[in-house]
Design a protein around this nucleic acid. Sequence first.
RNA 1: GCCCAGGUGGCGGAAUUGGUAUACGCACAACACUUAAAAUGUUGCGCCGCAAGGCAUGCGGGUUCGAGCCCCGCCCUGGGCACCA
Length: 1057
Amino acid sequence: MKKYDPKSIEKKWQKYWEKNKTFEVKEDTKKQKFYSLIEFPYPSGVGLHVGHPRPFTAMDVISRKKRMEGFNVLYPIGFDAFGLPTENFAIKTGRPPAEVTAENIANFTRQLKALGYSFDWSRAVDTTDPTYYKWTQWIFLQLYKHGLAYKKNQPVNWCPKDKTGLANEEVVDGCCERCGTPVEKRDKEQWMLAITKYADKLLDGLKEVNYITPARVQQENWIGRSEGAVVRFTVIPSEARADEESLSQPIEVFTTRLDTIFSGTFLVIAPEHPLVKQLATPEQKKAVEKYVQETAQKTDIERTAEEKDKSGVFTGSYALNPATGDKMPIWIADFVLAQYGTGAVFADAHDERDFAMAKKYSLPLKVSIRPADDALWERVQKLEECFPSEGTLVNSGQFDGLTSAEAREKILPWLEQKGMARRQINFKLRDWVFSRQRYWGEPIPLVKCENCRKKKYNYILLHGFKGSSQGIFFPRLKEELEKQGHTVFAPDLPNPMQPNIEEQVKSVLEKTEINENTVIVATSLGGAVAMNLVEHLKKTIAKLVLVDCFIRPEFADRARPEVEQSFNWQFNFEKIKKNAKEIVLVVDKNFPVIPENQAREMMKAMHASAQFVEPVAQHFTNDGQEPEILKALEQTGWIPLPESELPLKLPKVEKYEPTDTGESPLSAMSDWVNTTCPRCGGPAKRETDTMPNWAGSSWYFLRYADPNNDKEFASMEKLRYWMDGNPVTPTTKEESLAHSPTDGQRSLVGASLARDDKRGGGVDWYNGGMEHTVLHLLYSRFWNQFLYDIGVVPTREPYKKRTSHGMILGPDGEKMSKSRGNVINPDEMIEQFGTDAFRAYIGFMGPFDQAVKWDTNGLVGVRRFLDRVWSLQERVIASEERAKQSPRQESKGEIAASPSAPRNDKITTLLHQTIKKVSDDIEAMHFNTAIAKLMELTNEMMKEEKISNIQYQILIQLLSPFAPHIAEELWELYGDKEILAYSPWPKFDPELAKESMITIVVQVNGKVREQLEVPADISEDEIKNQALASEKIQKWLDGKEPKKVIYVRGKLISIVV
RNA sequence: GCCCAGGUGGCGGAAUUGGUAUACGCACAACACUUAAAAUGUUGCGCCGCAAGGCAUGCGGGUUCGAGCCCCGCCCUGGGCACCA
């Protein structure tokens, strides 16, 4: 036997795997796929640190086991390489970030390969590669075209050190998440992504995925859904106020505690509330202005620092409580947040903040919720104490005696009837600031064209069934468009009650000219008129806007024969697509009459972009304005690049420093910035903001499915296989077993499927850091859901299962950092102890989801274990003997049971217990206990003079996910011909795992007094007799008669005297 | 303040979820091998006690034949959210 030499063994097998492409995978519909994913690393200049291998090793262990269980396993790797550290390095050294990135990736690749991970390297992606970010840009354009990306001037979080805008999520305690500098507010035009439109979907989706609880809870909290109502408070007219007219509108307040409305005694609005100026009476004007100015100067930290000391100012105005009719003074205070709800609250004695405010400024308070505790009620009534919890209603008129929850359900319709309230759901989630004023990110593929912005069009507005040109939002839209300088033609279509589409088309064509300056806006049945009209044109029009239209007269509520008979309902979508340069659908996402799949079909058939919105009135029937339609028609001058011009590559610049004006370094590149408009050919300027780091990582898992595709970001076919392949939705155990990939593995695979893969599709298992559970996970779920909505990915949710690893701390128990000098370098550890020992120690060091201290001594212990496994070779029965005793044809389980390994063989029993333990523990990420069991087995084998070849094989296989190199080496010597990585995972036999003799513990009054070694199949009576007859027990019974004798099968006997 | 985790030997941690608390590893000690050391192997190792035995899973109660695990009330540590109406 040679000495165990990890260095040569590890090099040998890493070479072998690479040369033989052992872990490269292809779509194979005959095999069930398993997609395991890790968060791809940021290739920093300092290389891999010891924290990286923890999640990578964990998923490698799982991937290797799944492979042996017969799954077609995709375990990909890539690099998330855009971002600040590289850019900052470039600024410091003057070297191009692309060059630095390439070097860093090469170094990371070397280190990762040395760790023996079973990645499919052929699928590696790099977010900074133009062939990758082409598709990041493409996805952004889809978002833009569907109305989910918009530019907005708004206060943004500005980091004065990094000179960049930050998303809300990147601001921690009012400071920059990256550098810790206090964040300032700055007004800046920023690209925003309307993630709030997906708030409900993102929340709902959490129900169908299997995320570890903290991850799910954190997402739920971040989305922050709360159910409540918006209540209207009429402002009492006052001659003192200058701008009386604008106050005809009431102040709206969002509340989740409508049950407390009867104790509402004053209103508080945010300093940024739009009505602040109008509400201030002349006497209060100065004080109000001063207060508003003061709060504007405070940073967020300062504002929240004075949490207990509520400051505020009276506006001088009053409103009416819609429930009681009471006169309520209107105050301004900075504890009310402009961004949440309506930026206004009604204040009462049942909220700590309101209570504190009222006490400070001697504002009126009354009490309408009674606690169960009488003493507390006493104090609450005297206004000595605030009672913010729920209770029973008092002083609330007809609602007295109801509980808080009951009252909310009764008060809402009561106020609704009076037109003073409506049900409302509110979210904490904010839209995503998507602009960065930086160089090292994906350029935003839009140009600004003044020509297109100012261009005037000829609009044609087409109404629907039973409609007219004077109905719904048409008159206001016409007025608005004409004000902007467009011409508008809004005809009354003939026979609106008994329409004939072809007749209506004819009448439109007779009355107006149609050309390339024409924009048609059609609503409902008008859509059929518009589409039929466009279909038969000989020329093209500029734009076709279809507002809640349909292509088949199918309605969810009832049939409409007049609509059915109005047309033959045949469209040539190809022609429509050709004749309209741009087609936009605006869809009422809550209108149940027209099934949503119609809009989806139209999107597909005509390459239309669709905006699913909430109109003012259902089906856009408001007779005032419909702002979503105005928005869809708005000429911002932002023109998307055509797909053929993607990728829009980053130009090489001289200097990477951000400018002090807050513009990106790209803005200095006039050659690049000045371009031509892809729509009109006139002069245009490129957007110089770049995308945030989160962009590339929001969809990389999709690219892995088809990384070299240059026609699409990934083909639907490949996505179907890897994201949704052989979807398994077992309802019973039997059913789940039927999906097992190969025979002979059923019990294990079936069990794991039944537990983990309950619903939906997506990446089968995604492990990542807790620091990414809010942002990255939410953003990538948002993008995936959006891509699902436009029909280009197969699953609504991207990740079926999400787990998280704990941090690895330095030997001193502190977070590893250069400045502390407690950084462990994985390269050194591998050099000293070998990759296998390192990997096994990573698994063994502690519970996977908890933070653990690094302890090199522990690594020494694991290395000793591998040495013992190696030295077990001495005990393996010689080969001739082996051939006799373990014929190859037999399956592993049978061999273990064969005469060479007798039924009561201690090793066989322990071996099968170990198969079970290791199999289950890997699934549960209990790597530490799996390895402990393998150590136990090895220690037992060390005590034997001889072990069978097959027993040794099984040990090697069970060890292989953790220590793949030593395992392959030993497998080559003692295993089958084919490679270990694809050998079938050992089969657990419950019969063989059973012990023949068991230890029964005998307790007297709860204390252990005796242990009995008995046959496992002993009867209850027999063991009870034995226990009572035992000398020791007799002594403890001391002649007394037992009151009770309890037998727990196979475990213990409890005697009570 | 609110929401998650968690608290077990000298240390990292086990415990089939109500059934022998301390598996496995580290550290430590003794012994074997060795001229010696390292490596390796064997044995011991929660605390008190000579022993019989008693006491131990953050603290205090409770339920139970039996509690690390369940219930009630506290304390501490880590993480997240934080004036969200």
